[in-house]
Design a protein around this nucleic acid. Structure first.
Lengths: 258, 258
DNA sequence: CCTTTTGTTTTATATTAAAAAACTCTGTTT
DNA sequence: AAACAGAGTTTTTTAATATAAAACAAAAGG
């Protein structure tokens, strides 16, 4: 079933921007898309008319528009859990001094839907709206560990275990063994697998059907971590996850899958 | 300069969804847009392909997709200030028990870019990504009060002073007088002008050029408010706004316009 | 001041989007 | 079980639009 070419092109223009290329000029886009600059101009003017793109008056370059932020905050799949979780993220961040994240699964990746930074000033990879690989992150492992065997097998079909650090798990066997540990412990760890020098611990957040709907994590420099610290953090996360499930209208956390 | 019709239509489909209509079926969209259902189908399939729209597998209806959230969090105009402000919002919310907002101006409206709820459980109009009128909100007044006369006159050209409550200011004269008070006091008030029973106080956040780049507010039931409470809240907000300006790399707050 | 680059506009036509018709699927009614 | 209604999806023809070439305007750089 064919796509509409001009809509396809317009959306691909939106996809060109990233954290490093936040502004692009017409000739940039023309080159990247292999389209004539007057074609690009028409596409941009249509996106701009609807505020999906705006033109920087200072330099004439184009950048993503506020309508994306507005519409993005109407994507309902995460709004309830984000609103309900926020105070728990804050609470844990205040208690630990570390950065706390809320992540949901979207396709075959996690996506950060909220983040409360700690007081230590540690600069992390994570950013709201950014995607995160499941194999190398605590939140990713927590999100998929509790899928049933069939679902998990389907999920991992074609999955690429890209190395991010020396510690990244890059084989499916090792990853499945890791997920077994997550199920056993009820929490997931990222031992400098996604970012050098950073350790994260995460727990799943359940719905009433025994499905994991989100994961919550604490991230910090590995130098600050020991067994006691982790034990306390796991407890804080599990307590918060239970409360969040309850506040979302669910009964006991994960009881249906035990 | 003409728009590209099919792109225009696709974006207008995205604009159909709101907080009350979070899912639509093809015939809904066909009717609202006065387009043939096979036309709508093609547009939706193109949006879906790029994850700007997704189809609910349970009922076949369409809803906004995660790409909007992802791209929305690449709209750079507010990311720095949101990240830097977050801990201040949290701090004020913890200290006061009330809901704290961060708002920027977009076109002729404010838009909520962050929100930390208080502990009182007060349910408010505000929501991240939602727009807010400048004439009836404390943040709106704080955002525009310090524009120079010419800019302000230009801004208010054609502005509609819609009544939201019995207290809403609905004349330009009254509104200009109100902005004069904001300039004098250094903070803005919303005395149940936007939402019945809710009082808000807001301050501007400045950049180094003497421009207001955001506003920060505290909202609470009017029943909890008195002169002393307001005074304390104004102080908390002003302190935080100064710190935020500094952390954004600016020097003294608003010094260039005093 | 001249040249180059970039953004914008106009116009002809090649290409695509649009809708009508038909098909498929699901749920409801008889 | 069969028929019907509604909704989603697919196919096909052609009317309508998007595309790019050319030209123009504005800004930046040498």
């Amino acid at each position: 079933m064919p796509l509409i070419q001009s809509v396809d092109r317009a959306l691909r223009i939106l996809d060109l921007f990233d954290e490093y290329e936040t502004e692009l000029k017409i000739t940039d886009i023309s080159e990247k898309m292999q389209l004539h600059k007057s074609t690009v101009h028409s596409l941009l003017k249509t996106l701009q008319h609807h505020h999906y793109i705006e033109q920087n008056p200072e330099n004439g370059k184009y950048r993503l528009g506020m309508k994306l932020f507005e519409r993005g905050n109407l994507v309902i799949r995460h709004l309830d859990i984000r609103a309900i979780s926020k105070k728990h993220l804050i609470d844990i961040s205040v208690k630990t001094g570390n950065t706390v994240h809320l992540v949901i699964l979207d396709g075959k990746e996690g996506i950060y839907i909220d983040k409360v930074e700690g007081t230590s000033g540690t600069v992390l990879y994570s950013r709201i709206g950014r995607r995160v690989p499941v194999h190398s992150s605590a939140v990713g492992k927590a999100l998929i560990a509790f899928k049933d065997d069939k679902e998990l097998k389907e999920f991992l079909k074609g999955y690429v275990y890209k190395r991010h650090t020396a510690n990244t798990i890059t084989s499916e066997e090792q990853f499945l063994a890791e997920l077994e540990k997550v199920r056993k412990n009820g929490y997931a760890l990222d031992n400098e697998e996604n970012e050098p020098g950073i350790t994260c611990v995460a727990v799943p957040i359940w719905d009433h059907s025994g499905n994991v709907i989100a994961a919550m994590s604490i991230s910090q420099p590995s130098a600050k971590v020991n067994d006691l610290v982790l034990k306390e953090e796991v407890q804080l996360l599990k307590n918060a996850a239970n409360l969040i499930s309850k506040e979302l209208g669910y009964s006991k956390h994960g009881s249906s899958h035990l």
